[in-house]
């Protein structure tokens, strides 16, 4: 029984997404509602007025689907529908699309104001982890 619980915890932590921002972002934590507001492109500026650049992985990637369900509490199709509706009604831009996690990290490192997510986050001086409350 203990082994099963430990295995479940290990699997969960291995698959959990870490929200990562470029070091220029002054925040260290966000609420779940704020995170959802940012990834649904409703909040487009950080508190200091600088633009937010949202970076996501392709819709069909397992990492994106886990992030959408677990962190945003949205089904991936809901997120896609929101982006489609906003981009075709002119009220918001689409998030930037990273090819894979390595590309995601590269965009986050080099773009001030950017926010994204990675699994198995490794510390990097150009980016930082944001705690979700």
């Amino acid at each position: 029984m203990l082994a099963v619980v430990l295995w479940c915890c290990t699997v969960k932590s291995a698959a959990a997404s870490t929200v990562v921002v470029n070091n220029s972002v002054v925040l260290d934590k966000l609420t779940s509602a704020q995170l959802r507001s940012i990834f649904t492109m409703r909040q487009i500026q950080w508190p200091d007025g600088s633009p937010i650049y949202v970076v996501v992985l392709p819709d069909d990637s397992a990492e994106h689907q886990r992030f959408s369900r677990e962190q945003l509490r949205l089904f991936p199709y809901q997120l896609t529908n929101i982006w489609d509706r906003q981009s075709f009604s002119g009220t918001a831009s689409r998030p930037w699309l990273a090819k894979d996690q390595a590309h995601m990290m590269e965009l986050l490192r080099t773009t001030p104001g950017s926010i994204g997510y990675v699994e198995q986050y490794q510390a990097d001086p150009a980016v930082k982890e944001v705690r979700i409350e």
């Binding site: 704020q34 909040q43 002119g90």
Partner: peptide, 25 residues
């Protein structure tokens, strides 16, 4: 307007109907 729990936009020009479920697109 941009704060942690409130954001607001003003649109001027030829605007879309954002009111119904599918009206904007």
């Amino acid at each position: 307007y941009n704060s942690n729990d409130l954001q607001a936009n003003l649109y001027l020009g030829r605007i879309k109907n954002q009111h119904w479920l599918y009206s904007s697109t």
